[in-house]
Simulated assay, not measured.
Amino acid sequence: MTLTFVLYRMMPGGPTEALRNVILQQQMGTGNTIDPARVERLVAQYTNLQSDAPMYKQYIQYMSSVFLEQDLGESLYEDASVTSLLAERIPWSMLISVYAMVIGYTVSIVLGAVMAFKEKSRFDSISSIVVIGLNSTPYYVAGILLIFFFSIRNEIFPTGGRVGLGVEEGFNILFMQSIAYHAALPVLSMSILGLGTALTMRGNAVRVLGEDYLRVAKLRGLRNSRIATQYVGRNAILPMYTQFMIGIAGVLSSSVIVEQIFSYPGVGLLVYDAIQVRNYPVLMGSLIVFTLVTIVAILIADLTYGFIDPRISSGGTDE
Rank of each mutant, 00 (worst) to 15 (best):
V107H: 00
P186R: 03
S151K: 11
G133I: 06
N135K: 06
I152H: 09
M176P: 07
V187R: 01
R122F: 12
P158R: 07
M190T: 08
G143R: 00
V110T: 12
S178C: 12
N154Y: 12
S128G: 14
G143C: 05
E119V: 11
L145A: 13
N154R: 13
A142K: 02
G161R: 08
I132R: 01
G160D: 09
M190H: 04
V141Q: 10
K120R: 10
A184G: 10
G143M: 05
L165D: 13
V141T: 14
L185K: 07
G133V: 11
N135W: 05
L111M: 15
S151W: 06
L188Q: 02
S178T: 07
I147E: 08
A116C: 08
S121Y: 09
A183I: 04
G143Q: 03
P186C: 03
F171Q: 14
A116V: 04
S128R: 08
V131R: 00
F149W: 15
G170T: 05
E155P: 06
L165Y: 09
I132Q: 01
K118R: 13
Y139N: 10
S121R: 09
P186W: 03
L146T: 07
T159A: 11
G164T: 10
P158V: 04
R122S: 08
R153Q: 15
L146Y: 08
I129F: 14
F117H: 09
D124R: 08
Q177K: 15
E168F: 10
I103H: 11
F149I: 09
G112Q: 03
V141G: 08
M190S: 04
F123E: 01
S127P: 02
R162W: 07
G160T: 12
L165A: 14
I152T: 13
F149G: 05
L146R: 11
F148L: 15
K118D: 00
S178F: 04
L134P: 03
S127W: 02
G143P: 01
S121H: 06
F148D: 14
N135M: 09
Y181I: 02
N135P: 02
I103N: 11
A183K: 02
S189Y: 13
V130H: 00
L188E: 00
E155L: 08
I144Q: 09
E169P: 03
A183P: 00
A183Y: 00
G143W: 02
L134C: 13
V114Y: 06
L146Q: 11
M115P: 01
Y105E: 09
I109D: 01
I109G: 00
T159M: 11
R162E: 07
Y181V: 02
A184L: 15
E169G: 08
G161E: 09
I144C: 04
G166H: 12
S125W: 10
S108H: 00
I147V: 15
T137N: 05
M190W: 03
N154C: 09
I152C: 08
Q177S: 11
S128A: 12
S125T: 15
V141A: 15
K118H: 05
F149K: 12
T106E: 01
I132T: 07
V107C: 00
I129R: 11
S127Q: 01
G112I: 05
V163Q: 11
F175M: 03
I156R: 07
I173Y: 15
N154Q: 11
F148R: 14
N172R: 14
L174P: 03
G164W: 04
